[in-house]
Amino acid sequence: MQNTAKAFAQVDIKAVALKAYANVCDEWKLNQKEASSLADMSDSTWKRAKKPGFTGDLTKDQLLRLSAIIGIFKSLDLYFSKPLSREWMTRPNTGPLFRGQRPIDAAVEGGLPQILQVRTYLDALRGGA
């Protein structure tokens, strides 16, 4: 019984994370390649994963990426008003983390460590630890 509940919880977390991530990608107007690369998935896997009922597995790294990206989205919403909160990730940024790159490109290039740095950076901007 406990294994069934655990498996259900994992599927539920995965489904919620994928749906939330897909919504973030839509709000940020990311293209297929940006969305799949940011999540560390192939284009074909991302196409399948964003549909309801996806039965594939996600690695811990992928789940952490999705969680951090959703946190970035929330931080941007708290710190900036629209449209900047929706455009921030895709606008060039001269800050030290980005060196003129768009944050989305820096995050894809730097992988999970860079994604987590962006999350920490935004949390600090809004007064977090």
Rank of each mutant, 00 (worst) to 15 (best):
M1G: 15
N3M: 10
T4K: 15
T4C: 05
K6D: 07
K6N: 01
F8M: 05
Q10V: 12
V11M: 09
V11F: 12
D12T: 15
K14R: 14
A15Q: 08
A15N: 11
V16N: 06
A20I: 08
A20G: 07
Y21T: 01
N23E: 09
E27S: 15
K29D: 05
K29H: 13
K29I: 06
K29L: 08
N31S: 10
Q32T: 15
Q32L: 13
K33N: 05
E34L: 08
A35S: 10
S36P: 05
S37I: 02
S37K: 07
M41L: 13
M41H: 02
D43N: 09
T45R: 13
T45H: 08
T45I: 09
T45Q: 11
A49V: 06
K50Y: 12
K51C: 02
P52M: 06
T55D: 10
G56Q: 08
G56S: 01
D57N: 14
D57C: 03
L58Q: 06
L58G: 06
L63N: 10
L64Y: 05
L64H: 05
R65E: 10
L66G: 04
L66Q: 04
A68D: 08
A68G: 08
I70T: 12
I70H: 12
I72P: 04
I72T: 03
K74L: 10
S81W: 09
S81Q: 12
K82M: 11
K82D: 02
P83F: 07
L84Y: 15
R86P: 00
E87D: 15
W88M: 00
W88D: 00
M89F: 14
M89L: 09
M89Q: 08
T90M: 05
T90E: 02
R91N: 11
G95S: 04
G95Y: 13
P96I: 04
F98T: 07
R99Q: 11
R99Y: 15
Q101I: 02
P103C: 05
D105Q: 13
A106F: 10
A107C: 12
E109D: 11
G110N: 04
G111C: 02
P113N: 03
Q114P: 00
Q114H: 10
I115M: 04
I115C: 03
I115R: 06
L116N: 02
Y121Q: 11
Y121W: 15
L125H: 13
G127C: 05
A129V: 14
A129C: 04
